[in-house]
C-alpha cells in the first residue's frame, strides 16, 4: 500500500502510514471501475421504483391467495399480520412444493402454515449491490422493501436486470 502523502510502501491492510501517520483506511474501500459498478454501489433500491406490495393476511385461505395472484398476475404475495407487519411470503413455489397433491379441501386451509416465514428484505435506502447480492445468495426473484417492518414495495430480479442492461446500452 503506497501512502498517497509520502509515497512510503506500507504493509497491505495498514490503517495508517508507518512513515507519516497518514490515515490509509480510505484506500481499502473499493472504487467503481465503470458506470454499472458505480450505479450498483451508489444507487439505492428506491431508484428501481418498487412495485406496490400485494399482501394477504396469514389467516386468508389458499383459495383467496390464488385468486389474488391471478387477478394481479403475480407469483408471490406478501403475508402480513393484523398490524400490517411483514411476517412471510407465499409464492408459487410454496404451492408446488407443499400444497399440490394434498387431499380435497386444501383450498380452504389458511396460508400461514404454508408460507415461507421471515423473508429477506431490503429498505429503499439500501444500495443496489446489496440487494443484488441478497438475490444471488438466496436465489430470490423478489425482495420485499420494508420500512419499520411494514412492506412498502417489492423489487424483482427483472427490475434489476432491466436497470443493468439499460446502463450497458448507454455506455
Amino acid at each position: 500500500m503506497i501512502c498517497p502523502n509520502c509515497g512510503y510502501d506500507n504493509l497491505p491492510g495498514s490503517e495508517e502510514c508507518s512513515s507519516c501517520q497518514q490515515d490509509l483506511t480510505q484506500l481499502d474501500r473499493p472504487t467503481a471501475n465503470n458506470r454499472v459498478e458505480q450505479s450498483l454501489m451508489e444507487d439505492r433500491v428506491g431508484l428501481l421504483e418498487p412495485r406496490k406490495p400485494i399482501t394477504v393476511k396469514a389467516d386468508a385461505t389458499i383459495r383467496e391467495a390464488i385468486q389474488t395472484m391471478m387477478s394481479h398476475s403475480v407469483g408471490s404475495l406478501l403475508v402480513v399480520d393484523d398490524d400490517g407487519r411483514l411476517i412471510g411470503v407465499f409464492t408459487e413455489r410454496d404451492i408446488l412444493t407443499k400444497i399440490a397433491g394434498r387431499p380435497e379441501g386444501w383450498m380452504d386451509l389458511p396460508v400461514g402454515p404454508f408460507m415461507t416465514p421471515k423473508p429477506e428484505c431490503v429498505t429503499s435506502n439500501d444500495t443496489l449491490a446489496f440487494a443484488l447480492h441478497k438475490m444471488d445468495i438466496g436465489g430470490y426473484r423478489h425482495l420485499p422493501v420494508v420500512r419499520e417492518g411494514k412492506p412498502e414495495g417489492v423489487i424483482s430480479v427483472r427490475d434489476m436486470l432491466r436497470h443493468i442492461t439499460q446502463l450497458c446500452r448507454e455506455i
Binding site: P30, L40, M41, T127
Partner: peptide
C-alpha cells in the same frame, strides 16, 4: 464485480 462491492453494508 469484486465481492467487496457487495459486502459493503448499505
Amino acid at each position: 464485480f469484486p465481492t467487496t462491492v457487495y459486502n459493503l453494508p448499505p
